[in-house]
Design a protein around this nucleic acid. Structure first.
Lengths: 218, 218
DNA sequence: CCGGATCCGGTGACTTAGTCACCGAGCGGC
DNA sequence: GCCGCTCGGTGACTAAGTCACCGGATCCGG
C-alpha cells in the first residue's frame, strides 16, 4: 500500500528518518457537513488535510457569520494547533464543506517532529504565516473596504472558467461579512449595469473587466 | 553585570544550556515614535520586548487606521517572526509608543533554540496563540459589534484607577476601527446621559457600571 | 509676549450599510 | 398536488461612514 505522504507533494523535503514517523499515521475520513471544531473546544491534534475542503467561520452574537479562511489539501488548520501548543481555546468554527481525508498528528509526535526536523518546522511556520495573512486580509476588507468592492472581489474569486458563480446570496454575504439583504440589493444594482446576471442559486459574470475594475477602485 | 534574562520573569523555565545562548545577546534601545516595521518589510529577527510598548496598526487605502494589538514587555512581535520563518511579508505597521528596550534574536540563534529547547518552543507558540487570539477579537468586534459597545469597551479598558482615559477622539477611533467624527458624536451622546465627561485630550468616566452594561449588551 | 502652525474637536449634509418584518416564488419530497 | 423549505425581494428605518469646513486650544519659535 502506498503511503499518503508519498502521494502528497507538500512535505517532499522532509528528512527520511522523520518520514517514517508520519507515514505510520493512518488518515481518517470525515463526511461533509461535519462540524469539526466549535468555539471553546480544546484541540487535540495537529491536522493535515489530504483531500476535501474545510471552511473556518467566525460567528457574532447577532448570528451573522463571516468566513475566515478555507483549508485546502496539504494545509493545516492552524487554530487547532495553537490550541494544543499554546493552550488557547479554539475561537472559530470549522465545518467540513466536502468529504474529507486528513491525518491527525498527536501532540507527542508533533513535539518530536518539531524538535527534530527543521523542514517540518518550516512547514508549520509557513502554514502559520499563510493563515495570519488570510486573517489580516479579511480584517482589512471588513474594516476598510466597501461592500460593493468586496462583492466584486469574491465573485471573481469564485467564478469558474465560464464565469459561473454557484453560491446563494447568503453564501456571499457570509464570505464578505455582511447581511443577505445587502448582497441582494448590490447584486441587483450590478446586474442593472449589465455586468452580471442573477439566477436562482448562482450568478453569471458577463463583464469580467468591469468587475475587476470595481474590485480595485478606492 | 546582571543578565536581562534573569530580570525578566517570562523565560524562567528555559533550560540552563540555552539560557547562555540568549544571555549573550545585547538588548537594543529604541526611542519613542520610531516606526519599527512597515507593510512589505522583510523582518530580520525574532524580537523580545523588555520594556516599553509597541503598537501594531493596520492601515486601509482610505487612510483610516486600526489598532491590531499592543506588544508589552515579555512579549514578541509575532508578525516579524512569521516574516523570517514563513517567508511572508509584514502586513502591519509597528510603532514604538514609548522608548523601548528589546532583544533581537537573529534567525540562526532562533533556529537553534527552536531545535533544542522545548520550553522555548512553548514560549513561541504561546506568543502566537495569544496574538492570533487578539486578532480574532478585533475581527469579531469590527465585523459584528456596534460602535457604541466597542467604544464603551475601550474606555473601560483604558481608564486608570480614577476613571481617567487620556486619549484623543482620534486615538479612540483607531482603537475601535472607525472614524473620528463617529467617536465624537457617540461620546457626546454618552456624555449627555451623564456617564462620562469630555475634556480636551481625555475622558473621565463617571458611571463605570453603566458603561459596563453598555459594552456587554447585544 | 506675540503670531502662526498645528492639533483637537464640533457640525451639517449626505451616502452607504445593517436591521427588521414580511412576502412570494421556486423547488424537492412524499 | 400539497407541504414545507430555501431563496430572494422589498419597504421602512437606524447606524455608521464620508466630506467639507469651522473655530478654539496649544505649542513653539522669535
Amino acid at each position: 500500500m502506498m503511503s499518503w505522504l508519498r502521494d502528497a507533494g507538500f512535505l517532499a523535503a522532509l528528512e527520511p528518518e522523520w518520514r517514517r514517523e508520519l507515514e505510520g499515521l493512518k488518515p481518517v475520513h470525515v463526511p461533509a457537513r461535519t462540524t469539526l471544531f466549535r468555539p471553546g473546544d480544546a484541540a487535540q491534534s495537529f491536522v493535515i488535510l489530504l483531500s476535501g475542503r474545510i471552511g473556518v467561520y467566525l460567528t457574532g452574537r447577532n448570528g451573522r457569520e463571516l468566513l475566515l479562511y478555507a483549508v485546502s489539501p496539504g494545509e493545516t488548520c492552524v487554530q487547532t494547533t495553537l490550541g494544543v501548543l499554546g493552550g488557547a481555546p479554539y475561537t472559530g468554527e470549522a465545518i467540513a464543506e466536502t468529504d474529507l481525508v486528513a491525518v491527525m498528528v498527536p501532540p507527542t509526535v508533533f513535539e518530536r517532529l518539531m524538535a527534530g526536523s527543521s523542514s517540518f518546522r518550516q512547514f508549520v511556520f509557513r502554514a502559520f504565516a499563510a493563515r495570519l495573512g488570510d486573517l489580516m486580509f479579511v480584517l482589512e476588507q471588513v474594516a476598510f473596504v466597501k461592500v460593493e468592492q468586496r462583492l466584486a472581489h469574491v465573485l471573481l474569486d469564485r467564478a469558474d472558467a465560464s464565469g459561473e458563480v454557484s453560491a446563494t446570496h447568503q453564501d456571499l454575504a457570509v464570505a464578505i461579512g455582511t447581511a443577505r439583504e445587502v448582497v441582494s440589493r448590490r447584486l441587483e444594482a450590478i446586474a442593472s449595469k449589465g455586468w452580471i446576471a442573477n439566477e436562482r442559486g448562482s450568478i453569471r459574470i458577463l463583464d469580467r473587466a468591469a468587475l475587476t475594475k470595481m474590485a480595485a477602485q478606492p
